[in-house]
Structure formats: structure tokens, C-alpha cells
Amino acid sequence: MANGDGTAVVNSWNEWDTLREVVVGSADGACYEPTEPGNRPQVRDRPDEPFPTGPKPPEVIAKANEELDRLAEVLESRGIVVRRPAPYDFSQPLRTPHFGVENQYCAVCPRDVMITVGNEIIEATMSRRARYFEYEPYRHLVYEYWESDPRISWTVAPKPTMASAMYREEFWTWPLEERHRRMHQSEFCVTQDEVVFDAADMNRFGRDIVVQESMTTNRAGIRWLKRHLEPRGFRVHPVHFPLDYFPSHIDCTFVPLRTGLILTNPDRPLREDEVALFTENDWKLVEAPEPVLSNSEMPTHCQSSKWLSMNVLSISPTTVICEEQEAPLHDLLTDMGFEVLTVPFRNVFEFGGSLHCATWDIRRDGTAEDLFPRAKYTPLTAGSSR
């Protein structure tokens, strides 16, 4: 089966070409993410107060769902097909031979676990125990796409054990001086012993994939992506933002808006030796304005930073959806020639993301363009330990 224009039912090569079909998350059944070796949630500005456990209150879920539904309506008004995750009971405890957690998390952020790379769907490993089975609400969609078009490939990345040895628990107690000393070593709460990556640490630029090394993606995960994607014609580029002491997911730090233009985080500059990849290939890096909310004003149980302001969703090379209160960002994007659509999304923040996080591209226009023709790239050769 193909679409009317002959393209595959799953087709997305970058973050900005015209969007045709997308999955929007749901807050149904959401729980507070538990404390575990890969995550230490805290009540904002009250670190000594116990973090809530179990299901989120119905009124909190209802407010988030109202905003997610509004996003879906805006997308549909632009002719975009919107799909939603299946119901899932995240209050179920999870036990494996290596670990246990009392509850799971939510299906608000499909971008974290699912990614479309060309005509392939990849399910990420995930880095946190409570998110081990987070792919399940999307499996009915994956099977539908896979069964409907023989051009579609579907890859499940190797699941890590998530045993204690996979984590560096002392990371959470390092003083600032120790973090500063280690910041260029990119050693965070996951070790390098198993393949670990979240899909939201990846940006797609045609045949080039940019991957952030972070608390949720380690060097073994990047190496697995290289080995998997290079034979398919992709180039995988690790990137680092050394002033971010808790890096997790790239889409509040480095956001491509259209060919040649990237929105960057002024608090988290790209490592100096990695800037040339972009500037030498005619990409302009533009700093995002200061968010309207400060970190202290973010929702009490939100574990993300004020830079969720940058977590925008491009639905074409000329149209971007932003959170409705981020007026300075609206003005910047408008001045750069974008049509800016706005939706309220502050109630979604405490579920781990904003507009880009809460969506998963299924189909966009476009093909595997080479947008880095002057890139200096060395493939990962057999036996290499890079």
C-alpha cells in the first residue's frame, strides 16, 4: 500500500518538511515517574519534600489531555492525519530478573521512544526502568504501518538489562565542582557497558543524523546507531553541549527549523570543535530568546527546564507551532519568515515535554537529501571501538 503520491506510508527524513501524518501523545493513565538509578525526580524548589508516587491526579491528567487534544485539532485543521496511542495501564508494577519499579510513566511523549528514519521505524532502548515498556501504546500503529507497506522496516533496538551495574548512581551526588571537572568526559548516570539511547536525543537532517551524548544516550548507544544506520546510507554525528550538566534529549537545546537554520540554546552552546560541521555546510545557528517562564516558575512536578520554550513543532519549512505564551520566540520566528501557530501547553510540561516531545512524525514530504556536502565523516569500521 502507498499513498496517493506513491510515497511510503512511513516516510520522514528530517524535522521540518511538510507534515502529513503524526502521532500525538495522551496523558491517560499517567503516573509520577518513580525514583530509580537513572532518574531522581524532585519537587521544584523543595528538594527535601518527597516526590509523589503512583497515578497522577485525574484533574492533572484532564488538563494535559485538553491541551493535547487542542494540538491534535490544530494539526487536523491543517489537513494532517493525527493518530493516538492505545490505552495502557501505567500504574502496573514492573518486574524483570534485574530490577523492579512500582509503576510506569506515561504515553505523553512518543518522541522519546519512537523515531522514523526515512522509511524505517526504530524503537529506542530507553534509559529508565519505568519506561521499559513505553513502546506498547504505539505497537498497534507500528503493526498497521508495517503490514500495509512492504517498503517499511521496523527495528527494535536491543533492550538493556537496566541492572544496577548499568548506572552510575554516585552521579546524583556529585558537587558542582566535580560536574565541571567531568563535563568534557560526558560521563553521566548511565555507564558505557550496554547500548542505551532515547529517540529524543536524535535530530534528523536527511541522510545525516545528529545524536546527543547524554544522561539518556551513551557512547555504546551511538555506536549501535552508527552500525545500524551507516549500511543504510546514513551518517551519524555525535554532538555535545558541555555546559548542560544534566543533558537529556536534544530538542530543548538544538532545534532545526528548516534547511540551513537551527534554533540554539544560549545556555548550552555546542562544543566548539563540533560547530564547524554546521557552519561549513551553510547552516545558520540562531539563539533562542529567554523563555517567558523562569526555572522557578515551571510547574511544581515538572522535571524539565524553562527551555521547553524551544520545544517547537515544525509542520512545514514555513510553519511552526509554539506554546502560546512564548511571545519573544513567536516574534523571532515571525521575523525569520515563519507563520507561527500557537497552542496552550503549560499543563503538559510536567509530563516531560512540550510540542515536539508530544509528537512522533510518521510521514512528511521530502527525501534523503545530503544537507552536509562538506562533512568530514569517517564510517565506523568493523572492529573499531569508537
Rank of each mutant, 00 (worst) to 15 (best):
V190Y: 13
T191V: 08
Q192C: 09
D193H: 13
E194N: 03
D198V: 01
D198P: 01
A199K: 12
A199H: 11
A199G: 11
R207S: 15
V211S: 05
Q212P: 13
Q212W: 14
E213M: 10
M215T: 11
T217H: 00
N218F: 12
R219D: 09
R219W: 15
G221N: 03
G221T: 04
I222N: 07
R223P: 02
R223V: 02
R223Q: 09
R227P: 01
R227T: 10
P231H: 06
R232K: 15
R232W: 07
G233R: 14
G233F: 13
V236M: 12
H237W: 15
H237N: 07
H240F: 14
F241N: 03
P242L: 01
P242W: 02
L243Q: 13
P247T: 11
P247C: 10
P247M: 06
S248Q: 14
S248C: 12
I250K: 05
D251N: 11
C252V: 11
T253P: 02
T253E: 03
T253V: 12
F254H: 05
V255R: 04
V255S: 02
V255F: 01
V255G: 01
V255W: 03
L257T: 03
L261R: 06
L261S: 02
L261N: 05
I262P: 04
L263P: 01
N265S: 07
P269T: 09
L270W: 09
E272V: 13
L277K: 12
F278N: 06
T279H: 10
N281F: 11
D282A: 10
W283T: 08
W283G: 09
L285F: 05
A288N: 00
P289G: 00
P291C: 00
P291E: 00
V292C: 00
V292M: 00
L293E: 00
L293A: 03
L293V: 00
S294H: 04
S294P: 01
N295D: 13
E297P: 01
P299H: 09
H301A: 11
C302G: 08
C302D: 11
C302N: 10
Q303C: 05
Q303S: 08
S305M: 01
